[in-house]
Design a binder for these strands. Structure first.
Lengths: 185, 185
DNA sequence: TACAATTTTCAGAAATTTCTGAAAATTGGT
DNA sequence: ACCAATTTTCAGAAATTTCTGAAAATTGTA
């Protein structure tokens, strides 16, 4: 099992990207070979394709599974585990975003909440205000995302294509219902 | 110039966050102290507050400036450079996203474009299709973001608060103009 | 131009992250 | 229960990233 030369450049690049998304280079490359191969791959194949140790592959697969990006696929009469993506590229993208929200935004939010709870006068008003501002911003993003995530891929895609066009639509909406059907706190 | 104990936990945490956004722990902490201080800070103050070397601060400030997150502020009769955020937390958030798009999404897109240009038969159809799919997905996100970025903070905030509510609005809109103003390829 | 204040640079040191590979654990079949 | 196939673990090694601090460069003033 070898990688085509052209795919190789891409896999390497994908690895760099992966490191921006919260996992390391090699794990990113592992995800790439799994996604860009029609058939599920086993650990030995991945190790060979990327030229890395078996142990490293095992750890990487664990990580990708904890991110819920890949799943095991069993082949009849073969004890080996084969791995394939949990879904389409779209599904994977949503999954990465969602997992990052859980792992990064949530902890920050709880910290900020805690910070705001203490009524100490240790820090000055400016800092407290900023912390509140930061909290509100993250909270806004957070609920927006978990909200948006529940939409069907089709609606979401329409929305993306519309871009800033939604602005105009919102105007139309205003003309019809100025009663607060959407909570503007 | 010292950090209040409560702020300290937060600055440390902010540092961790920073490392997820594309710069390292220390640079993240530097951004935090600059943002959460009412008055602009100079390099020595930052070095002292975070207990790091002067050289390190100099490099970090350079990086934050290259991200366009902070700017120099000159005090009358003082040769030192003081630093302050370019704008509100909202501005900073947009700026980080925008910079990451430029630094990460753009290069990936050009790579994918190049990949699709070559009409070699080196790789199989499945892989080519996936590359196309990935390209389209990134392109969609890319244009959406640069589009959305041009909206006023107020409209954007309204949009975020609306969440998946836009879905309903889109339905209303459909009832009025079913002519294809949004290309659904 | 000369000088002191300030900032930047960068080679080597330190810290952190990632990887290997052999041993241990697990799994499925008989 | 036993065995062979397969996967996981993890201590130490290797690779990478970050940091220091002293020297070099730059800047503003007189």
């Amino acid at each position: 099992m070898t990688i085509s030369t052209e795919l190789e450049t891409f896999v390497v690049h994908f690895g760099e990207m992966g490191s921006r998304w919260g996992f390391n280079r090699t794990v990113g490359q592992m995800l790439a070979v799994i996604v860009f191969n029609e058939r599920p791959l086993n650990a030995d194949q991945i190790a060979e394709m990327l030229g890395i140790s078996r142990g490293n592959v095992s750890m990487g697969l664990k990580e990708l599974q904890s991110w819920q990006l890949i799943r095991v696929h069993k082949n009849q009469g073969d004890r080996k585990d084969y791995f394939k993506p949990i879904g389409s590229l779209w599904d994977l993208a949503i999954q990465v975003l969602s997992e990052r929200r859980k792992r990064e935004v949530e902890p920050t939010l709880s910290l900020l909440r805690g910070q705001l709870m203490t009524d100490s006068n240790d820090e000055n008003q400016f800092t407290r205000d900023k912390i509140k501002e930061m909290h509100d911003l993250l909270e806004l993003f957070n609920t927006w995302f978990s909200d948006i995530q529940r939409m069907s891929p089709e609606s979401l895609q329409t929305l993306l294509k519309l871009g800033s066009g939604v602005g105009k639509i919102l105007d139309i909406k205003h003309r019809f219902s100025s009663s607060g059907s959407t909570n503007t706190d």
